[in-house]
Design a protein around this nucleic acid. Structure first.
Lengths: 356, 356
DNA sequence: CCAAGTAGGTAACGCGCGTTACTAGCGCAT
DNA sequence: ATGCGCTAGTAACGCGCGTTACCTACTTGG
């Protein structure tokens, strides 16, 4: 009964917003005392008894601090902002999640701004500027700028007003710290896995050869082969369009080009979408995975890799980890610590499934 | 040159935060005048000349309003909050995007709170409460509560303190307005499409028969058949686990059970993941899609539907639209307008691709 | 020449809170 | 009695802004 009354009281009071003043009155103390207790001030001398009275009043009235007012008075918001090109892109989301989780652990709030409105008119740049502007209006203490695929970017100038960290991309103008996947190590681990399974003739379905992902992954593949005393046969590297259809066509070409003896026994597809297409090409020819041809992908696009049959062994891009690291780096920067490194590389773990 | 100076000036000033006072001084007017100009007040009488001077000062100094202070003074935040179980779930993200875009159009900001931290300890409920609490501390004016799959939910009590709208779920206690997909109409359109293509014997790979998705889609399928003077053969409805493997097994069962003559010529898979498995079963038996067997899915899980070969014809769940509608409904509620309806149904459009 | 507008502003309060400076009371040594 | 140091607080300012009430010219009609 008493409990019901209390909770009703709380609900009613909240309607109009219970303030510290209300709490102070209820506890019979000054608002300052309440503030001291709530912010757990070290050198404040408040007796245990009044402290208890205040805490009780907070409970009874259902007091909830006003984050905006607190930010205004204390001149710090505890907010970070993240702006990313395509909020619904499968990868952007994982970055956001990693950052969000980490921010939550640090008792901070992550404001997420879209930079690609559905009905945006004109160049994307304008949208991005507006998003950053909006975040700065909220007085975020730091900014995260994330790309959906690893590449160089030009960050709007307004980002320079607060500490900024780039995720999954790097500053083409070379001033801002960034966090990117270690593509090279990822390519290496993929091919090492194939070598370990006994494959010596490995086909590679390549991406656009100019992007960092292709450059890094291919370099890693070469390293792994070199370690085993092998070389990458240029003929076995076929270009592919970064889709399932592209992978299908590339796989067809490589499979039909050789006799059964010369045919590669494994395919390293530089992304999972292409691997998905390669599966079709392989199955179409009556070959089995991994019996006749082993396949390894890259990206770990869950919806594909985990549902293909057999499930696809692939190398994961560490999006969540990059997001978390981004927040940590930002925390360090806003705390005035020096930058750890211009560019932090994050490892790409191999995910063993059933296609090798 | 002059421009450089200006922008430097602006950058330097922003460091310490340019306030309205600074603008007022620069323009030689009172802060009130600045406020009037910036908020475009109707009945304020400011001459065109001083208005121009103020606007110029804003430009020169690089003034940016402080959203927190504004919220504090005006007693309205222009913020909505959204809390959803699994931020990275493929569907949740689309809801967020729809809501985000709409909020942006309405010049509002959407705060996104996760209710499923990676390292959450104990029951999920605690996390959700904390997330809502955090949003209320930011003084959001309304709350969106989204689920990743259509179902009944219990919303934490604290959500009652501000207008709340449910998306892709409904209040099991029946008090809050909700927005859900029209599963029945979706099921109907799927089967109508198959009928239109000449199929008369249609297999259905079902979901857990108790969830709203299964109930609605199946009911819609029955309606479509009834309109064509047909009945749904109970034997042709096989239960499936909601994964690719589940779809594979269900499809195997239905394909192997009949002779070529009695075999259904089309499969309605109640989700795309199962359709993905069904593809494998069909191809494995040397049958072609859609030549021998047409397949239609549900959900439009892009990464699957758009990359399967042939691309999967499916019925889309209108996540973005639901998100947008959620924000619109919230806007109406916070404006004091009466609720349009307890439950708003949103249509599920058919996406024609190549599997029918 | 005077009262009554009207255009063009400004002073001052309060939003909810953090923070600094100050005070009142008390025990204790001088 | 006086001074000192300590505990347990409180008064008051300011954060940046919206808003109301008010004030001062300058017309305009009578």
């Amino acid at each position: 009964m008493a409990k019901t009354t209390t909770s009703n009281h709380a609900a009613a009071a909240r309607q109009r917003g219970v303030t510290m003043n209300d709490v102070a009155k209820h506890a019979g103390v000054s608002r300052t005392a309440v503030s001291f207790v709530l912010s757990n001030r070290e050198n404040a001398s408040i007796s245990e008894e009044t402290r208890a009275r205040i805490n009780e009043a907070v409970q009874v009235l259902g007091y909830r601090p006003n984050a905006g007012a607190r930010a205004l008075a204390s001149q710090r918001s505890d907010w970070y902002g993240i702006v990313t090109e395509i909020v619904t892109a499968p990868f952007a989301v994982d970055i956001i999640k990693g950052a969000q989780d980490q921010a939550w652990l640090d008792r901070r709030f992550l404001l997420i701004a879209p930079s690609d409105q559905a009905d945006a008119v004109g160049p994307n740049q304008g949208m991005e500027d507006a998003a950053i502007e909006k975040l700065l209006e909220q007085r975020v203490e730091g900014l995260l700028y994330a790309a959906t695929y690893h590449r160089g970017v030009h960050v709007p100038e307004s980002a320079n007003e607060v500490p900024t960290v780039l995720i999954n991309c790097f500053d083409a103008d070379g001033r801002l710290p960034s966090i990117v996947p270690d593509e090279r190590a990822g390519g290496r681990v993929a091919v090492e896995r194939l070598l370990q399974a006994g494959h010596r003739r490995i086909g590679v379905i390549n991406l656009d050869p100019d992007i960092p992902a292709a450059v890094g992954r291919l370099a890693g593949a070469r390293e792994a082969l070199a370690d085993a005393g092998l070389e990458l046969d240029p003929e076995l590297v076929v270009p592919g369009h970064a889709t399932a259809d592209g992978g299908y066509e590339a796989a067809c070409e490589i499979l039909d080009r050789y006799t059964e003896k010369d045919r590669p026994t494994a395919l390293f597809c530089l992304n999972d979408r292409m691997a998905m297409g390669a599966y079709d090409a392989i199955k179409e020819r009556g070959l089995t995975i991994p019996g006749d041809i082993a396949v390894i992908g890259f990206d770990n696009q869950e919806l594909i890799a985990a549902y293909l049959r057999p499930k696809l062994t692939t190398v994961a891009l560490p999006f969540e980890k990059m997001g978390a690291l981004g927040v940590q780096t930002l925390a360090a920067l806003t705390a005035g610590q020096p930058i750890i490194a211009d560019q932090q590389l994050v490892g790409c773990p191999l995910l063993e499934r059933s296609s090798v």
